[in-house]
Amino acid sequence: HSTEQTEIADLPACENLNPGNLQLVSELKNPSSSCSVDVSTMWWERAGTKEPCIITACEDVVSLWKPLNSLQWEKVHTWHFTEVPVLQIVPVPDVCNLICVALGNLEIREIRSLLCSSGDESEKQVLLKSGDIKAVLGVTKRRLVSSTGTFCNQQIQIMTFAEDGSSKDEQLLMPPDETVLTFAEVQGTQEALLGTTTMNSIVIWNLKTGQLLKKMHIDDAYQAAVCHRAYSEMGLLFVVLNHPCAKESQALGSPVFQMLVINPKTAQSVGVLLCSLPQGQAGRFLEGDVKDHVAAAVLTSGTIAIWDLLLGHCTALLPPVSDQSWSLVKWSGTDSHLLAGQKDGNIFIYRY
């Protein structure tokens, strides 16, 4: 099915968007001296108290910030990387005091866990995996899934961490005959994991048994799209992909996200929603994050746009602040906040 069959969400004009949907809560002013590469949130326990903390990453340093009050943050731990630069933070759900990071140049070469020893609170890092790593994702129940190699020597591994983040258990998932590029969790079916491949397929695994359940080819119109999130509802999979198409048309506007519905039993799929920019706004998807029913994207114009996937339209636009384009956007995993980052390292925290 082509994108032409997809239902097009309403394109409200910019002036109809409620600017009150995003309220600035606090700011981490230029926390690092070099270019910011990622931001995330996590729970950190100190002296028996769990606190929602922020993790910032630039190429050679990862920092943990704890809240001093509702407006201010204090840097409490820092991990340094002198040999291989940091590419991304990999948050692991349901675990305290453990951060994972992916390191490499253009492609991921290492995954490391960052910890603090309980005795002297000194920072340490543990190499979890090295090699030609194609994709990595933290999933519920303290698990980390990664794929290494290409289709003929591909290995897909799931690590399970102990509650304190220390020891781990390893299991292999059955690889498909195509190279896996990205993973996505399935909300509503906790033991299901989705993957996208180089040949434009979506694959489903059973995380508990390691079985490969299905390989489904999707229309080439979705080529090069990354799956950000999937929802299992009423026997169907609703899959959120970013829209790789740069074309803007009168009818579609500028599509940034798209939603496909897939019947996992028959592998049949159809496009159901296009998330386009409001009229008068231009820009393509640069990077983004989807949590529950909200999708956020940094656009090539430097603006951040947010869509409510249930309403089917854009609900907020955040233009560059102080003439600085946005470069990062992440939903907080610990509350309903949005973390927006600028290239110079400034992080702004908004309530949505």
Binding site: M174, I204, N206, Q211, G235, K265, T266
Partner: peptide, 21 residues
């Protein structure tokens, strides 16, 4: 959505029982 063939609410369990171990 009607073009997608028969829908099963237990698709995950059914595919798990059909797939090779």
């Amino acid at each position: 959505i009607t073009d997608l063939g028969p829908i099963s609410l237990n698709w995950f369990e059914e595919l798990s029982s059909e797939a090779p171990p």
